[in-house]
Design a binder for these strands. Structure first.
Lengths: 294, 294
DNA sequence: TCAGCTTACGCCGAGCGTAAATATG
DNA sequence: CATATTTACGCTCGGCGTAAGCTGA
């Protein structure tokens, strides 16, 4: 069982495609095919169905182990490479809707402490943010997600990463102005059959949120309007045009006309933003972390 | 960074020798040397001192990551190989002084439940027991160690293994009958300068116990009598002959004449025995586990 | 001096890419 | 029929063992 094979398994599982995985990893698609064949030969069982490409039960188990292994290898490499790295640049990977107000302020205080500090920030998906931090491509990840209050957002991954809660925000359902729903609040369970505008790159969908099985997630994804982008204004315009509803933190909903918001009555359901740091890099970024918590 | 290189690093770190690591892994010594050279080249720093072979600071960091990776790879392999494995044999790896009374009884109840059940038991060091369980060579590990009561014995390794406390036993200092120490109890701190018979394969030594730095451990190892064996009777005879003291659970001390025991006054210090199982194999061995806990 | 780690070197196998074959929807 | 994975094949590169070299106790 080789690391490159496990990397390919993780990539195929994530992308759902041999071809895309190969592109991500810088291989030809043929090579990825051989990697998976290697694993399936050593395990003696099918790890993935083809057409569509999906993990089998056994494949899921191995993929979980593989993800841990790959992450730890990346973290180890990053950690050892950072030992005598004196670059002062702070690089932050964040999900598009993560609450960046606090870190923006914290970075100001770093700038005033050391005048030459350079900074870089990039938005991406939560899993990409995690990978960027693990690989040393970024120092900090600021990710958000919908969770029951006080439950963990990301698996803090066996002591490799440490997470700090940056904030929790109220969730609202965004509806068009002319939507029949009245009142100023709503129970999510009443909306399972509603039409949704799903923006997987921007926020998790309702079926995922309610922990429905993958089949239901896939079904709802075809049944509703899917927006493959991270542009918040476009999403809200789609809602205003009546293509469906959206579930968002209230902070981001006042961008366009033609929509109104309903408070979510589901108790303890919030949009949490967390800061992720490699445990081995906590000292290096203590200034920012303490500024965030202060 | 390749798995075989990391395996070699772990083996060299454990054995303190390239040659021995190569034997353990089934390579030539030259190959292991190349593995370490690979790692040192990719990291760009020295991982091990030579003569004597010891981990550097950087090497320790990488070795810890490597141990996690290797363990998880082994566990994944074992887990997937066990999916359609219907052998009824129960294989237990245990440390020599682990309290086996309860598992012996638990295995009786398994035997009466299914008459054809085969069993195998082997004694080895705790780390070997862990490796045997991870590699699927054994199903259960029964390991003991001296700990403060209610603190964990083995790192339950990031969710890969689950541990069950089998029992905690009182610790005693074994002294020759004619030893000047009087009374029936003693404070361990009064014994740091005493002569000890150290049996690293049987029980951890006092300096290790008191969390002294490695230098102190090494120094004491040369200053006292070292017994490289697991034979309890021989150890007690060495104590009786005045070569030094030993720290043991009371249960095992009545084997020879010429020694007496002093209760350890250090509060909360016990010899704990734990059962380790792969999380993925808990269901398979539920009969034994429930019998142990009942 | 000698045990033990490193280096040189040649052979072999493994993995990659190209390209043709195959399968599925 | 189009798209995506598998298989065939050859080339290259990397890793292994053998054996010679080196070095510190």
């Amino acid at each position: 069982m080789e690391i490159r094979d496990l990397r390919s398994l993780v990539a195929v599982a994530r992308t759902g495609s041999f071809t895309q995985a190969a592109k991500d990893l810088g291989y030809t698609q043929s090579a990825v095919s051989q990697h998976i064949a290697n694993l399936e030969r050593t395990v003696g069982r099918t790890l993935l169905t083809r057409r569509p490409v999906r993990l089998t039960e056994v494949g899921s188990r191995l993929a979980e182990h593989a993800a841990h292994v790959v992450l730890r290898i990346d973290v180890a490499t990053t950690e050892l490479a950072a030992i005598d790295d004196e670059t002062a640049e702070v690089r932050v990977a964040m999900t598009p809707l993560a609450d960046s107000r606090h870190i923006a302020r914290a970075l100001r205080s770093v700038r005033s402490a050391s005048t030459g500090a350079r900074m870089r920030m990039v938005t991406c998906s939560a899993s990409v943010a995690l990978a960027r931090v693990a690989s040393g491509d970024c120092d900090l990840a600021l990710v958000d997600g919908i969770v029951a209050s006080s439950s963990p957002l990301v698996l803090a991954e066996a002591g490799l990463l440490r997470s700090f809660v940056v904030g929790e925000e109220e969730l609202v359902v965004v509806v068009p102005d002319d939507h029949p729903l009245r009142g100023d609040s709503i129970d999510l369970d009443a909306l399972t059959d509603a039409q949704w505008v799903i923006a997987p790159d921007l926020v998790c969908s309702l079926p995922e949120l309610l922990h429905l099985p993958p089949s239901a997630v896939a079904a709802s994804a075809t049944a509703t309007f899917t927006f493959d982008g991270t542009d918040l204004m476009t999403l809200l315009e789609l809602v205003a045009a009546g293509h469906g509803l959206a579930l968002l933190p209230r902070r981001v909903c006042s961008l366009v006309d033609g929509v109104r918001t309903l408070r979510v009555r589901r108790p303890n359901l919030v949009n949490r933003t967390e800061l992720l740091v490699l445990r081995s890099a906590i000292d290096r970024h203590r200034t920012i972390i303490t500024a965030l918590q202060g």
